[in-house]
Simulated assay, not measured.
Amino acid sequence: MRTFLGVAYDLGYHVVWCPKYRRPVLGGRVKDRLEELIRARADEHGWEIVALEVMPEHVHLFVKAHPKNSPSYVAGQFKGFTSHHLRAEFGHLRSQLPYFVATVGAVSDETVQRYIDTQEERRSRGGGRA
């Protein structure tokens, strides 16, 4: 629990985004750079990354943010910042990367973190896309 302007808060957002048509382009050097960029953006804003999983065709991010930042702002900061830098560094990523954001309210933080942490395991078992 944190405080801001005398208000206690604990806001966690599960942000998911993927390349156009879910093309598997987020591997190798792109994956490493994307993780770097996400962590850098979180540090800039003072947000805490609880869980991060970059899969070949999508990204799961569970982040704790300030109440002054709306969910769409948080998602946009990660998506826009990483998209801009990745497109400049990797020419094959020029297509649009849409995203989805949900608040963590109906489930516990631990459930969301476990879901993100087990993405690779579920994929290898043939669990399909998340």
Rank of each mutant, 00 (worst) to 15 (best):
M1Q: 15
M1W: 15
M1D: 15
M1S: 15
R2S: 14
T3C: 15
L5R: 15
V7I: 09
V7S: 11
A8L: 08
Y9H: 12
L11S: 04
L11P: 01
Y13S: 08
Y13V: 04
Y13F: 11
H14R: 13
V15Q: 04
V15C: 08
V15A: 10
V15D: 03
C18Q: 11
C18S: 11
P19V: 02
K20Q: 14
K20W: 09
Y21Q: 03
R23K: 11
R23H: 03
P24V: 06
G28P: 09
G28C: 10
R29Q: 14
R33D: 00
R33Q: 00
I38K: 10
I38A: 12
D43P: 02
E44P: 03
H45G: 07
G46K: 12
G46W: 10
W47P: 00
E48L: 13
V50K: 14
A51P: 01
A51N: 14
A51I: 11
A51M: 09
L52A: 14
E57W: 08
H60P: 05
F62Y: 09
V63Y: 00
A65S: 08
H66N: 10
H66Q: 10
K68D: 11
K68F: 04
K68Q: 13
K68P: 03
N69Q: 06
P71M: 02
S72C: 04
S72E: 06
Y73S: 00
A75T: 01
G76C: 06
F78I: 06
F78M: 09
G80C: 08
G80D: 02
F81N: 05
S83H: 12
H84V: 03
R87P: 00
R87G: 01
A88T: 03
F90W: 00
G91P: 14
R94I: 08
L97P: 03
P98Q: 12
P98T: 05
P98C: 11
Y99E: 07
F100I: 08
F100D: 12
A102H: 06
A102G: 05
T103M: 06
S108R: 06
D109E: 15
E110C: 02
E110G: 04
Q113A: 14
Q113P: 05
Y115K: 08
I116E: 11
Q119W: 07
Q119E: 12
Q119Y: 09
E121T: 10
E121Q: 14
E121C: 03
R125H: 03
G127E: 05
G128F: 07
A130I: 11
